[in-house]
Design a protein around this nucleic acid. Sequence first.
RNA 1: GGGCAAUUAGCUCAGCUGGUUAGAGCGCCACAUUGACAUUGUGGAGGUCACAAGUUCGAAUCUUGUAUUGCCCACCA
Length: 897
Amino acid sequence: MLDKAYDPKAVEDRIYEMWETSGAFKPESYDPNGEPFTISMPPPNATGQLHLGHAVMLALEDIFIRFARMQGKKALWVPGTDHAAIATENVVIKQLKDGGMKDPRKELGREKLIAKIAEFVEGSKNTIRGQVRKMGSSCDWSRERYTFEPALNRCVNEVFCRMKNDGLIYRGHRIVNWDPKLQTTVSDDEIEYKEEKGVFYTFKYGPFEIGTSRPETKFGDKYVVMHPKDKRYSKFKHGETFDAEWINGSVRATVIKDECIDMEFGTGVMTITPWHDKIDFEIAERHGLEKEQVIGFDGKLLEIGGEFAGMKIEEARPLIVEKLKSKGLLVKSDENYMHNKAVSQRGGGAIEPQIKLQWFIDVNKEVVPWEVKGGRGGKKGKEMMSLKQIMHSVVHHGEIEIIPDRFSKTYFHWIDNLRDWCISRQIWWGHRVPVWYKGEETIASAESPGEGFEQDPDTLDTWFSSAMWTWSTLVDTKLAADNSLSLEDILKSSPDFQTFHPTSVMETGYDILFFWVARMILMTTYATGQIPFKTVYLHGLIRTRDGAKMSKSHPETMIDPLDMISKYGADALRLSMIVGQSPGADSRLYEEKIAGYRNFINKLWNASRFVLMQCEQAGIDPKSIDKLPETAKLSLADRAILHALEILIEDVTKGLETYALSETGEKLYSFTWDTFCDWYLELSKGTANHAVLVHVLRRLLILLHPYCPFITEELWSQVSSTQDGMLIAKAWPKVKEDRKDQQAFADFQILIDVITAIRKLRTDQNVEPGTEISITLVSKKYCEGLESQEAHIRRLGKVVSLTITTDSVKLANAASAFLTDIEIHLSLEGLFDPAKLKASLEKEQAELTKYVQVLGGKLQNKNFVDRAPKELVDGEKAKLAEAEEKLVKIKERLAAI
RNA sequence: GGGCAAUUAGCUCAGCUGGUUAGAGCGCCACAUUGACAUUGUGGAGGUCACAAGUUCGAAUCUUGUAUUGCCCACCA
């Protein structure tokens, strides 16, 4: 017999191990002819801990994959981890520094540092693996991958070289976002803007006045730019020069006219610093101007700063202003200037734009053959497109569906503004740029082309390799190790790639739509000619109860999924994150919510326990039950619950197919608790139909399994039929139309009304415990249910024998409307408390009067009667008549008191 | 500056394409409870659906505007 309360700790690890060792996560264990269904797990960073974001992702994907598996599909979920270039390198460097090392990069050198990081990652991966298992994730561990393993490195090198040969990868001097703290470039998307109050200075510059919030960059400024149509400055000609007194003496400046200048802002004139500003850089490029570096990569001023050289920006700024002021060049300063400061998302340090020689992916070059679904402009067949165009096309033409749809708009907007992607990073941990130099020669190749060649020291942006994740994880590792094969050959002969790609659904947070999802589309369409996935399901952020972001800097706001699992169980945690969370929207999580679902899990446990006890008492082995009795032998309640069950199967199947997880979860919750436990099990306390009990419970366990796999699997082992195997591999039920019985279900609800009325009578009229009440029921149909109810009533109120009352309006209503074949006689003489009865009748009267008024008014509205659908009007009329009739009866009864 | 969303009970949220007297969970109040379950049961209180105008026989739902909040993108020297 089961324990009184469900103990997840005693169950979860054991069940998980049983699944894993049995091969239940492997698609090979199922019908080889099943339709393939694939999910690539977004690889958690190999830096450490599982957080709630991962937990949500794992729960959602596990539901998708379990449902697909039970539907008979060949379901594959590929797990893995990400080497997370910058993030990981930072963590290890910090650890080494904490351990007393001053500059780990210098002291260890490239090879040794990489070895240290690799060692750290190995340990960390194990932690993550264990935590992913704790969530119940049914992924195929035999196919686990890592973004930095040899096979994936091979893919990276192959794609890089191909892109380079196609002219899609180029090297050039561009303004990049330089992070002086981390000593590397970061991409546009890795920058955050923080609003900050600063000072806006206006200086005299020759005959002009110029504004700036960054005087420290102004040393090398020797161009003044203004709008060609600005009348204030029409006397100055483009290209004319003048001398101006400036920070460190006089400079020769040139006038430039450019349309990008906003005449409204400041004085309408600015000087430019092409080395340290994207816009200035573009102006300089347009007019072929000189560019000069002012700030070094260490964030300190260079030689050009004269007396300020070697100083940090923050130190130098006030001194520079002071100097300009003493020279009489400071016109004014506005202390309340709000501006946005660029900050590195990872390192938190200020971003300094710099010109650097970097590798880029060209997103506008139209050299990739691609066939637009449905034909672009009526054309069929492949045509040359740019990466940007392909990314747009596959979503625009519905080859890839984004859920929720509104993110498609955001996606298009992002694509429209997409610039070339800077892919080189100045760190050591990551895929090294496969380019070799020897004098003037530059060769793209994975291996050294020969003597005297040196490899580019940079590594690739971590998203470059994760962008290949859906397919690089399906590549056969042995084939990938064979250097005589081309990437195309490898893909062609990799069975997993052939079977499981494109993947079915990509589930991830909306915050990495651009970082990752968009880049997977870019990289995969280019490299494989296939889309990476058919559906993108985006989940929202989990926030605190107050709607704040959970952040590491405020540990008290963090909910640790592993804590919650050990406290409430993985099933409860999963439900609490899924129900109430709609795609693309943030949701809030707090402990009470998780506890609520723990209660639900326990309720399910006890309901099963009850079923087992009933069987035991009747001497029936639940495992031997394998079919339902004939319909003729079923009671009304049986037929009603079977009907409700079929409807539930229909709803849940449809809900899971359309990714409506929250709604479906709620339906399962309410069926389990309200319908199964509170109605059917209560009724079963008198006369139980064991076959039906077991049948409904089994079905319910199947339907609940994707949501809460552990408890359902555990209970399944108790109630499943002997020929059934594990629940994880059980076939999803099909809806049986002949089990639907709408009439029985409606009648059953009346029965519930009757029960409610009895209970109400007991409280309202204060029936003493032990009082004998007589009842006459004529319909056999309803007697069945009521007899069994007697036990329950006894337990509740110690009423010796059962009574039904027409005092209840609800019951009178029900009786007159549906119970045409029964008569209910009541005798409750001497049992009423007249005052209480009066009060309850009056209350009912008031409610009804209000109802009648509303309804009456509506029906007197000519427009409503004329224009609303006829059935609706008739329905309303009938209801009004019914309500009025009831009112009359209540009046009579009140008069009688 | 551009875009996207949200605003419904004390709290967290449902309410799909307009149609009964607007729902659930938690919390609160009352009562009950020794045979599945106190991780429980029954009942109750609590809402001019942010505001305004419009469309309609009928609006939480559609339109427009306003306010507040959140997010994304761009960024001004």
